Amino acid sequence: MSSTPAKILVPADDLRAFAAALLEKGGLSAEHARTTADVFVWAAQRGVDSHGTARVPAYLDLLAKGVANAHPKMTIESTTPAAAVLDADRAPGPVALTAAADEAVRRAHETGIASVGVRRTVHTGAIGYYVSRIAEQGLVGLGFVAGMPNMGYTGAQGAAVATSPLAIAVPAREHAPLLLDMATATVALGRIRQARANGTPLPQGAAATEDGTPTTDPERAVMPLPLGGAKGSGMSLAFELLTSVLVGAPIFAPFHAGDREHRQNALLVAVDPAAFGDPEAFVANVDDTLTTLKGLPVAEGAEGVFYPGERSAALAGERRAKGIPVAPKVWSQLGEHATRLGVALPV
């Protein structure tokens, strides 16, 4: 009887340096490689393996094919202090959205609230990272992303809208920040692939065949269904308007007219609590709210009462101390790229 190969534990700093070295050899500048690696390792630490170091080979492929621009000339356009548009020039998402988050924070400190739209980027990565970056500066962060249609829309046949995510981060003092990071799909595409590989059925109402017929058979499933039916598909469409259409780079309409060139757009918003009152009182009240939630009676059979981002923050602390587990298949892929690019594997 065969056993499942054990995952490889790699210290976070070593994994970050290794991923950055691979990405730099893949064509990114040293700074952009470090920025992109930061996003991947942040996701891996928090258990979001689909957006962790498993993304490194995919990004190397995007760079090799020229889908992602290794040397982007990003520009910022603005006609008002509280808003700007960052044209990414097809930079990898971590590069473009990290710059956009920092720009939103800078402007929000001056204007109280600021938004930065991101136009023409390539795969944004875990958007929880960017709103968390805003929250680290004591501001509230909100993020929306629109991408290529790969999910059903209630009442339509086939893939119609994207599994567009939403993320919100709220800083606290004693507690880890609240971090809500969710897609508009019931399950991720990666979950469908995983179910297919394992031969396990999918949850009812989670996925559909190519024509949009719901199925639990992973062999027939090709796309996820929207979270909450019309609610999830409506949110995805709204995010397309708030991101792509707002910055003059529509994806939805051109896609359905035959334009399948990969791209994504985003909108990041930073809100300074000081613009609404005492910022110290704000974080104190956030702590009080979270403490009150944690003190509610635990329902029968539940492990406890948790707020969004609490358990992933605890896991990140554990993985910082003990190392980040990397699946054998991913480690093998990273090793192949390391050999090809002349990068040493972490010991």
Rank of each mutant, 00 (worst) to 15 (best):
K7I: 01
A17K: 03
K25Y: 04
L28P: 04
R34H: 08
T35S: 15
D38T: 03
F40N: 14
H51E: 06
H51D: 06
K65W: 00
N69R: 09
A70F: 06
P72G: 10
M74T: 03
M74C: 05
S78L: 08
A82S: 15
V85E: 10
R90S: 13
V95S: 07
A96W: 01
A99H: 07
R106L: 15
G125M: 14
A126P: 08
G128K: 07
I134Y: 14
Q137D: 04
L139V: 05
M151R: 09
Y153A: 10
A160I: 00
V161A: 01
A162Q: 05
S164P: 10
S164K: 05
L178Y: 11
Q194I: 01
R196M: 05
L202W: 00
A206Q: 02
T216Y: 01
P218R: 06
E219D: 13
A221L: 04
L225I: 05
L227W: 03
G234S: 12
F239W: 00
G248D: 12
F252S: 07
H256E: 05
E261I: 04
Q264N: 02
L267Q: 07
V271D: 08
D272F: 07
A275W: 13
F276Y: 12
F276K: 02
E280F: 08
F282N: 04
A284W: 00
N285C: 11
V286T: 13
D288N: 09
T292W: 15
L296Y: 01
A302H: 06
Y307R: 10
P308C: 15
S312K: 14
I324V: 14
V330D: 05
S332Q: 13
